[in-house]
């Protein structure tokens, strides 16, 4: 029993050590040559443009359902006109970043783990090294950069679409005047909220992509291993999104409010 726990702790520590090791090599890869520009552009496209549809749909429906739910709740207090305030504050500060993060974790985190994992088990990573290429620079750096830049961009888009979704429901279902909604949206937002909505996704994007790369590059055990790695990557990066969101929120509340 005790032996099993010790083994588990050892394995967990080793995993953390490998992860930190990969991150430091990635940091070095970002600031020194060689730098694979073409792969960076490709990943910006794959991670950013490729995730646009899912993020648009998620943002839109989240904004719509939020307006619907808060509308019926606010009715109890005769405060239907306050819907915009609720929608904008919760979407910009919390739901935009977290839901975008979760969607990207599902789509991109799993994809990265599956791709790097199958390259690992078919010796393509070893072949890269044999051909003189550092897999961290070629595969990890472009993905991490794309995650750092594109997840915030996607979050801004998701939040904007969410507020529009809220407007659609507020005007056409709740029958509140358009101008009332927009005034309420602006009233509900403070500049600190906007900062929070912009800063959080950097951390989320970084966590999702780096976890996907780490899990992918540690894949062993053939096609079964690739399946396991994909599942692990989605689970780990989804939990990381929620956990990192909490800690960064706590930190930002101390720092900027």
């Amino acid at each position: 029993m005790g032996g099993g726990l010790v083994e588990w702790l050892k394995a967990a520590l080793l995993e953390v050590q490998e992860y930190v090791g990969m991150l430091s090599l990635t940091a070095r890869g970002i600031v020194s040559r060689p730098f694979y520009y073409r792969d960076v552009v490709q990943q910006f496209d794959a991670i950013g443009v490729g995730s646009l549809t899912v993020v648009l749909l998620t943002g839109l429906f989240t904004g719509m359902v939020l307006a619907l739910q808060s509308g019926t709740t606010l009715d109890a207090f005769g405060a239907r006109s306050m819907v915009g305030r609720l929608v904008s504050a919760s979407i910009v500060k919390e739901l935009g970043p977290v839901l975008t993060g979760l969607m990207v974790a599902g789509r991109v985190g799993s994809g990265i783990a599956a791709e790097l994992g199958s390259m690992m088990v078919t010796d393509q990573i070893a072949a890269l090294r044999a051909l003189g290429t550092d897999p961290i620079r070629k595969l990890v750096v472009p993905r991490v950069l794309a995650g750092l830049v594109m997840v915030p961009v996607l979050t801004v888009i998701a939040s904007a679409v969410g507020i529009v979704g809220g407007w659609i429901v507020t005007v056409f279902v709740l029958r509140v005047a358009s101008s009332v909604y927009w005034n309420s949206v602006v009233e509900g937002l403070y500049i600190q909220d906007v900062w929070m909505g912009l800063i959080k996704p950097f951390f989320l994007g970084f966590a999702i992509v780096s976890i996907g790369c780490h899990v992918g590059l540690r894949t062993t055990g053939g096609t079964q291993g690739v399946g396991r790695a994909t599942t692990n990557a989605v689970v780990a990066s989804s939990v990381a999104v929620i956990a990192v969101d909490y800690f960064v929120t706590q930190l930002l509340i101390v720092l900027i409010y």
């Binding site: 060689p34 078919t122 393509q124 072949a127 890269l128 044999a130 051909l131 290429t133």
Partner: peptide
């Protein structure tokens, strides 16, 4: 190095595989 099963990069064409080192490195 010629790996077992080849270990060709399956996202690249034969041209890009063979020329990989010349182009990239």
């Amino acid at each position: 190095m010629v790996f077992q099963e080849g270990a060709l990069f399956d996202s690249l064409s034969v041209r890009e595989n063979v020329g990989y080192k010349l182009d990239e490195e």
